[in-house]
Nucleic acid binder design. Structure first.
Length: 260
DNA sequence: ATGCCTAAGCCCCTTAGA
């Protein structure tokens, strides 16, 4: 089964690109981030016509996450990350879908960017990472095949960016961001792309500015984390890089993993 | 030190992104 994640950067303007990607890549489950639209304006009918049921957590203007599954809509398990009743951002959605007769639990996450740092936005990011770790610990305890995917806004190691120097002061690769991500991995999650590409040099994001795409100035911030029960079944994983070069592209490329 | 681009709402400038 194929599970994919795609930060679409605005589902309204990106819809033709996303439908094209679903038709060509044919994921069984697709998690989307940065919908940038409210619940009422999510294009549910367009996805249904494309053969995908959906659950979503929208927000006007920014944020917003969704889980699509081929066929019927997945069952929503949780909307919003626990641990802070004052957090109003739509950044976390958990769902369960049957694929090839077996249930898989998936979470679609859009982690706070955290810039500028230091500051309140960075504090929110670090607190969100700790809340995420707590929730993912509960998911590990279920001992079920579980996949947590999305835009983590963390460059895990120096090998995951085109330039350590250019990004040195960015919230995406501060030690506090990296340490929090590493602690999540140490708890038992497998970073699919990193496991299959230990040499690094794999990017999932290229800035719109300064010719970053043309110069291949990217970094890896969209991740697929597999529970042990899912990691045991990993066959392959990759980045659908060519979508970044198409007309009206998102600044992120889709990332996917194939499980037995 | 700043803008480089893009999307969307507060809609022709500002906010947010990364």
């Amino acid at each position: 089964m194929k599970i994919a994640t795609f930060n679409v950067n605005g589902i309204t303007s990106r819809l033709p690109r996303v439908l094209e990607w679903l038709a060509e890549s044919k994921p069984d489950v697709a998690c989307l981030q940065e919908l940038k639209t409210s619940d009422a304006t999510f294009p549910e009918a367009a996805f249904r016509d494309a053969g995908y049921g959906a659950v979503w957590h929208g927000q006007k203007g920014f944020n917003g996450v969704a889980v699509l599954a081929r066929g019927d809509a997945p069952a929503e398990l949780r909307r919003g990350l626990p641990g802070d009743p004052d957090d109003t951002h739509s950044r976390y959605l958990e769902a369960r879908a049957p694929v090839a007769g077996r249930d898989i639990t998936v979470a679609s996450i859009y982690l706070p960017n955290g810039n500028p740092q230091p500051g309140p936005k960075f504090d929110y990011k670090i607190a969100w990472l700790e809340r995420l770790r707590a929730r993912l610990g509960e998911l590990l305890e279920t001992e079920q095949p579980t996949v947590v995917v999305g835009d983590f806004n963390v460059i895990p190691e120096d090998k995951d960016t085109f330039s350590v120097r250019a990004m040195a002061n960015d919230a995406l690769m501060q030690p506090a961001s990296r340490d929090a991500y590493a602690r999540i991995l140490h708890d038992g999650w497998t970073d699919a792309i990193d496991t299959l590409n230990p040499q690094g040099g794999v990017w999932t994001f290229w800035d719109y500015q300064a010719g970053a795409w043309q110069r291949d100035h990217g970094f890896r911030i969209d991740h697929l984390l597999l529970s042990p029960q899912a990691a045991d079944r990993m066959i392959s994983a990759g980045v659908d890089k060519e979508y970044r070069g198409r007309e009206k592209a998102s600044d992120h490329a889709p990332v996917w993993v194939e499980l037995a």
